[in-house]
């Protein structure tokens, strides 16, 4: 039997909320699939659209950007800029025909280990039926 497709996901987690939330998931010994490689950034506001495109170009099957809830940003308002920027990128990717499930954004606070776990579980579940992402993957 062929091995089940395991999507590769890159997650940009802000240091103060989402990465801390992911740490809490660990401390609480929650379990989620190992498909995600986290990259800790200082703030969701620092996630450039280039990071997202680059991840897809390098073969990511899914990309997650996660930051603090509005009003809770360690840097006061970085997540608001992220929200605007990511909304535009998400809609553009959708427009060119990339499956919308592949690019997600979430708010995960330092206290939301459970939410982080659920987001990763759901993300992996949603990506599995889509198969590998080849639309933007480097085809050289």
């Amino acid at each position: 039997m062929a091995e089940e497709f395991e999507p590769k996901i890159v997650a940009f987690l802000c240091k103060w909320c989402s990465s801390a939330g992911s740490d809490l998931a660990g401390v609480s010994r929650m379990e989620y699939p190992p498909n995600v490689v986290p990259i800790q950034v200082m703030c969701s506001g620092s996630v450039s659209p280039l990071y997202v495109l680059s991840a897809f170009n390098k073969g990511a099957d899914g990309v997650l950007v996660s930051g603090c809830h509005p009003g809770d940003c360690h840097y006061i308002k970085g997540n608001f800029y992220a929200r605007r920027r990511i909304a535009l990128v998400k809609r553009l990717l959708d427009f060119i025909g990339l499956e919308p499930q592949r690019f997600q954004m979430s708010w995960v606070s330092a206290a939301e280990g459970t939410k982080y776990t659920q987001i990763i579980k759901d993300f992996v579940q949603e990506l599995k039926p889509l198969g590998p992402q080849t639309k933007l993957r480097r085809d050289l």
Partner: peptide
């Protein structure tokens, strides 16, 4: 960070090792 974001949240040793290497 291969504990909170890796070893503590996974069970499959091969996959967790793979992820820890990437991190």
């Amino acid at each position: 960070n291969i504990r909170e974001q890796c070893s503590w949240v996974h069970k499959d040793m091969n996959k967790a090792t793979d992820k820890a290497i990437k991190i």
